[in-house]
């Protein structure tokens, strides 16, 4: 079977002044996979996913997403992006937040109501639809933030540390939602520095100091380095630990 490429990062370098954040990156992400970017903070994961979401541009090189060079407003419409911060309007209710963002994506009327119900069900917040976001707990905010990113049924979901600061039970619930979407064909890119999360990805890119030091399935990475865990594999590839 010929696998289609969803995201192609080509010779991408990003510099902020003298500080190099991404060093001549090359990476292909296939359609329909869950791809994990694993690395310590400061490795350049957030910068890379921001570029893929159209929020930043590389200093040199090209990012191709869904066959278009980024940034591109039409492609932005097909991407769901969830940043590290929850980015919610806390003085509004969950429903008002969802209404606002679905209007921005041009989802209106009956379709809007349906989508709001669907995404809230997926993140298990249906009972809290009319609550003010300021009354939400941290975990609920995270899930609402995810729900918003799913409103417009994106083909590509980009998640920047989606489960940071979340308890294991809730983390499992969120990952169940990811697998559910993935089964329906959504490509998912997720950054993380949690090892057991990395194990759940189809493929992993190990990042350090703005470079990708290895790419492969968790199994491959462990076999190639003859190690028992992703953490040891990361160290064997020259990462100094996370």
């Amino acid at each position: 079977m010929m696998e289609k490429i969803c995201v192609s990062v080509q010779h991408v370098t990003k510099q902020f002044g003298k500080h190099i954040v991404l060093r001549n990156l090359d990476l292909n992400i296939k359609e329909g996979e869950v791809f994990g970017l694993l690395g310590p903070s400061g490795a350049g994961k957030t910068t890379l996913v921001k570029e893929l979401s159209g929020l930043d541009i590389p200093t040199s090189g090209t990012n191709i997403v869904l066959n278009q060079r980024m940034p591109d407003l039409k492609i932005i419409n097909r991407i769901g992006y969830m940043a590290q911060s929850d980015a919610l309007y806390e003085d509004l209710s969950a429903k008002e937040n969802l209404q606002f963002f679905s209007n921005l994506y041009g989802i209106k009327g009956k379709r809007q109501q349906e989508r709001i119900q669907e995404v809230m069900q997926l993140v298990d917040l249906t009972d809290h639809l009319y609550k003010l976001v300021s009354d939400y707990s941290g975990g609920m905010m995270r899930r609402l933030s995810l729900a918003i990113a799913l409103l417009h049924e994106p083909e590509l979901l980009i998640l920047d540390e989606p489960t940071v600061g979340i308890d294991p039970v809730l983390r499992k619930r969120i990952w169940d939602a990811f697998f559910h979407l993935n089964k329906k064909g959504t490509t998912i890119i997720v950054t993380t520095h949690v090892m057991d999360e990395a194990e759940k990805c189809d493929r992993l890119g190990l990042m350090r100091d703005g470079s990708i030091i290895a790419v492969g399935t968790p199994q491959e990475l462990k076999q190639r380095t003859r190690t028992a865990s992703i953490e040891e594999a990361f160290l064997a590839y020259g990462g100094e630990g996370i």
Partner: peptide, 14 residues
Amino acid sequence: TTGTLERLLSTPIR
């Protein structure tokens, strides 16, 4: 500062 501007800009709003 709450990141909602970034979220706004990750939608197709001009």
